[in-house]
Structure formats: structure tokens, C-alpha cells
């Protein structure tokens, strides 16, 4: 139905990256295979409140966005500035097969 090349942003689903941040990733280019435990299945078709750039999202120190924001309690994973926008895909490839 849609582009299949990463342009149209139609095939997004929420997936948690290795840094603990939920992003709306594109199934076509960031996938198509994702680690099942990183996909927020119950939230597919929605924008989770705490997804990157969603209304409830707060930037973390050192994370994407403005520095100086308080870290949420579950932020054990290190977040890297300029991290890949395709965390599910990188996580998947290192664990695939």
C-alpha cells in the first residue's frame, strides 16, 4: 500500500531501543524483522505517551533533545547522543539467528 522505501512514514510501530527509549520505527527500512520483546505490541497503532517526541516524552541528560531534564526512574540503559534512529534494527541484527 505504501512506499516500502522509508519515505512515507506510513508503516511505523513503537519499538524500544537499546537505550530504553521508545521510537516510532518504520517497518520497511528499520525492520522488517524486529526483536519481538522490543516491539510494544499493545501500543501498535498508537503513539505511546512516552515515545520519543510524543506529548509525554521528556529529554534526558545526554539523550536526544535538550540537556538538563530529569531522568526517569527506569533509565538504566546508557543513552548516546546521536544514537541510531533504528534501535530495534541494530538490536535485532546482533541477536538474529
Amino acid at each position: 500500500m505504501t512506499c516500502g522505501t522509508g519515505l512515507c512514514m506510513g508503516c511505523v510501530l513503537p519499538a524500544v531501543g537499546n537505550d530504553g527509549i521508545t521510537r516510532m520505527v518504520r517497518a520497511c527500512v528499520d525492520g522488517p524483522v524486529f526483536r519481538g520483546d522490543l516491539v510494544r505490541w499493545d501500543d501498535v497503532g498508537t503513539i505511546p505517551f512516552d515515545a520519543l517526541g510524543a506529548p509525554g516524552w521528556k529529554p534526558r541528560p545526554g539523550g536526544p533533545g535538550a540537556p538538563g531534564a530529569p531522568a526517569p526512574p527506569n533509565s538504566s540503559a546508557p543513552s548516546t547522543p546521536g544514537a541510531s534512529p533504528a534501535p530495534g534494527a541494530t538490536g535485532e541484527r546482533s541477536h538474529a539467528g
Partner: peptide, 11 residues
Amino acid sequence: EPRAGNPAPRL
């Protein structure tokens, strides 16, 4: 700011 966009279906 970063934006998560709208819920699906979007197209």
C-alpha cells in the same frame, strides 16, 4: 523538538 507524529493508519 523531536516529534513522534500521528497514530497509524496514516495513509
